[in-house]
């Protein structure tokens, strides 16, 4: 009984941490973008203000039950993947529900959110939403290929499908997986650029082109839930990468440093490029990232 209570409290603490860190990272992204463009930029806590404002909107129109579920699906997907990913290596405060095969579970559950949003966006009847959804699913077919290849390479190389086992491998051998299986890391980082959907892969949102795409009919509290879920999901992705390739983190400070360094890759890359078209984005992912994924699998099979 006590352990259940402990787990619930820990889950809430994990969620709060993920929410706060994700939101601050989002704010820092805006700040970095502003500084690069020679602007002062909003304060780093601007995303909290935005979230608070969205939550305090008095009305939020919805077009039916599925649109109601859309943000909920994203939130559920984010929280479920958060619960599986271990936050720290020797965690006492952040328990996770990981098990053997959670890497495969993650592969599925990370797709669940966008699919739920696709269902929700379909009911709004906005043509921009429909275009955004098709673009989002196309983009997913793009970056899932190198991403799955990288994970499969890890699974073959270390004969495990558990994230904790992979972390233990790194602790025992003393080297991070990004050095012992570099091709998998390169493929996964390139796939991450698509996962974050920043420029040049912001073809889903595309404010000037698609009026923010699938979320174009969601305002007020719906947008608040989506924004929080997105922040949590960003934290989950970064933590997963740190766990898989950078040896995990012993305490929060190391975790924040590692995740932020990793987060700078999509942020800075987004500042140097402009938006691809959908077919260009998919071709990009099926080019070099998939090639590196293939190399990673070859390395896993032949050089164990």
């Amino acid at each position: 009984m006590e352990s259940v209570l402990y787990n619930i409290l820990g889950a809430v603490a994990t969620f709060l941490l993920a929410f706060v860190v994700g939101m601050i990272y989002g704010g820092l992204n805006r700040k970095i973008t502003a500084r690069v463009q020679n602007r002062k930029g909003p304060p780093f806590y601007q995303n909290f203000i935005d979230a608070m404002k969205l939550a305090s909107k008095r009305s939020a129109i919805h077009h039916g039950i599925m649109q109601h579920f859309g943000p909920a699906f994203i939130m559920v997907s984010s929280v479920m993947s958060l619960m599986v990913v271990p936050v720290l290596t020797h965690n006492q405060w952040f328990p996770n529900l990981n098990f053997h095969g959670d890497l495969i579970f993650l592969l599925y559950i990370m797709v669940f959110g966008p699919l739920g949003m696709a269902l929700g966006a379909g009911q709004t009847g906005n043509p921009n939403s429909a275009i955004g959804v098709t673009r989002g699913l196309s983009l997913m077919t793009g970056f899932e290929i190198p991403w799955v290849m990288a994970l499969v390479a890890l699974m073959i190389q270390y004969h495990t499908t558990s994230i904790v086992d992979l972390m233990n491998v790194q602790i025992q051998s003393g080297t991070w997986l990004m050095f012992s299986s570099p091709f998998a890391f390169i493929a996964a980082v390139m796939a991450m650029l698509g996962m974050f959907r920043y420029s040049p892969f912001d073809i889903v949102g595309a404010p000037a082109e698609l009026a923010s795409g699938p979320i174009s009919e969601n305002g007020g509290k719906y947008l608040f839930v989506m924004m929080s879920a997105g922040s949590v999901f960003a934290f989950v992705k970064l933590t997963l990468y740190v766990d898989l390739f950078m040896g995990g983190a012993d305490n929060l400070v190391i975790l924040l440093v590692k995740t932020f360094v990793l987060y700078l890759i999509p942020v800075l890359y987004s500042l140097t490029t402009v938006r691809y078209r959908t077919e260009h984005a998919i071709r990009w992912f099926w080019g070099w990232p998939s090639f590196f994924g293939l190399l990673a699998i070859l390395q896993a099979v032949f050089f164990k």
Binding site: A34, P42, P43, S212, G219
Partner: peptide, 12 residues
């Protein structure tokens, strides 16, 4: 810097 940002759709 004042929190003024463009929104893409009237809903937001």
């Amino acid at each position: 810097r004042l929190g003024v940002r463009g929104a893409a759709t009237p809903r937001q």
